[in-house]
């Protein structure tokens, strides 16, 4: 069994955490080759080669791969697919954009958002926003899989795999990059942070969200938000934790002013320790929180910040 793992890139740099977590899942399937396809990615390829358990890195560096456009990347992956039994990507926005396109071009079903590898053909994945876990077995010749990174520990570094440069595939020239609006932040990345502080509708306004951010900064944490907070304009969309946002599993998750809708719980219930601060003692979030504090967040959050 041989696996082609698509490395996650962010602005030409290796997204180490997502790639290393997906690698742990990929290693359960066979011998792993990592594909680094981007623009200005020599360092990313070299870094991918240091991940423990990687046999080889394939490095395709070309302008057409610079912004993760699905059409040229899928063409490249399909051109390599003949050598592999599995094609794996982390279940990030980039991975979810790419993997189904690759699968359709290979005439196979994609298996998205896998949370557990049973064997080479059989995978566990959540359905209905995590309200059920389905185990599916694939009859396809090539398995195309995206792995939910929160469910896999990051593979360590310490390896030294060879890096092989490969040529770019043909560019279908169907789409082009216009611009990125990326939030610049010194905070840890949401999906890999050890601590996440999230705010919900109870925070009440974009200005009040500064309270959540300052508690996060005191703790060296990432900032998250419920869908209600994002829809109300209190927080940007890429902070959303939940079924349709990001899935996180930090050591500590602090939910502030979040009632605990199913769609939010689907994104954070695998966190190791959950703290809920909410003035409504009936809020469903308390049913899954390890530590619940029934209090007005405008009193509790400054007091918590003070006490740390």
């Amino acid at each position: 069994m041989s696996v082609l793992l698509i490395a996650e890139l962010s602005g030409g740099a290796l997204a180490l955490d997502a790639t290393a977590k997906a690698l742990t899942g990929a290693k359960q399937l066979g011998d792993v080759t990592v594909l680094v396809a981007g623009e200005g990615t020599d360092d990313a390829a070299a870094e991918a080669a240091t991940l423990d358990g990687v046999s080889k890195v394939l490095h395709a560096d070309a302008a057409i791969y610079g912004h993760g456009l699905a059409e040229p990347l899928a063409a490249l992956v399909v051109s390599l697919a003949g050598d592999y039994s599995h094609i794996v990507a982390p279940a990030t926005a980039a991975g979810k954009n790419l993997a189904p396109r690759v699968a359709a071009l290979l005439d196979v079903m994609v298996i998205s958002d896998v949370t557990g590898v049973v064997d080479g053909d059989t995978f566990e994945r959540p359905i209905y926003a995590g309200n059920a876990i389905q185990t599916v077995k694939s009859a396809d010749a090539t398995k195309v899989v995206t792995l939910r990174t929160a469910n896999f520990d990051a593979a360590p570094t310490g390896g030294s795999a060879p890096v092989e440069t490969i040529a770019a595939a043909d560019d279908p020239a169907l789409s082009s990059f216009v611009e990125d609006k990326v939030q610049e932040s010194d905070r840890p990345e949401l999906t890999s942070a050890k601590i996440v502080v999230s705010g919900g509708r109870g925070v009440g306004s974009e200005e009040n969200f500064a309270l959540i951010e300052s508690l996060a900064d005191t703790l060296g944490a990432a900032v998250g938000a419920s869908r209600a907070a994002v829809d109300s304009g209190y927080a940007p969309n890429d902070w959303q934790v939940g079924q349709t946002g990001k899935v996180v599993a930090p050591e500590l998750y602090i939910a502030v002013g979040i009632s605990g809708a199913i769609q939010h719980l689907a994104g954070m219930k695998d966190s190791k320790v959950i703290v809920a601060i909410n003035k409504d003692e009936e809020a469903p979030i308390f049913q899954i929180a390890d530590y619940g504090l029934v209090a007005d967040l405008f009193d509790a959050v400054p007091a918590l910040k003070e006490a740390l």
Binding site: P126, I133, V136, I274, E281, Y291, G292
Partner: peptide
Amino acid sequence: RLTVVSTAEPATRSAGVKV
């Protein structure tokens, strides 16, 4: 192309304590 082997309830998480 996929066979559903089983469908199960997710692991539940029980409520902790109120502080």
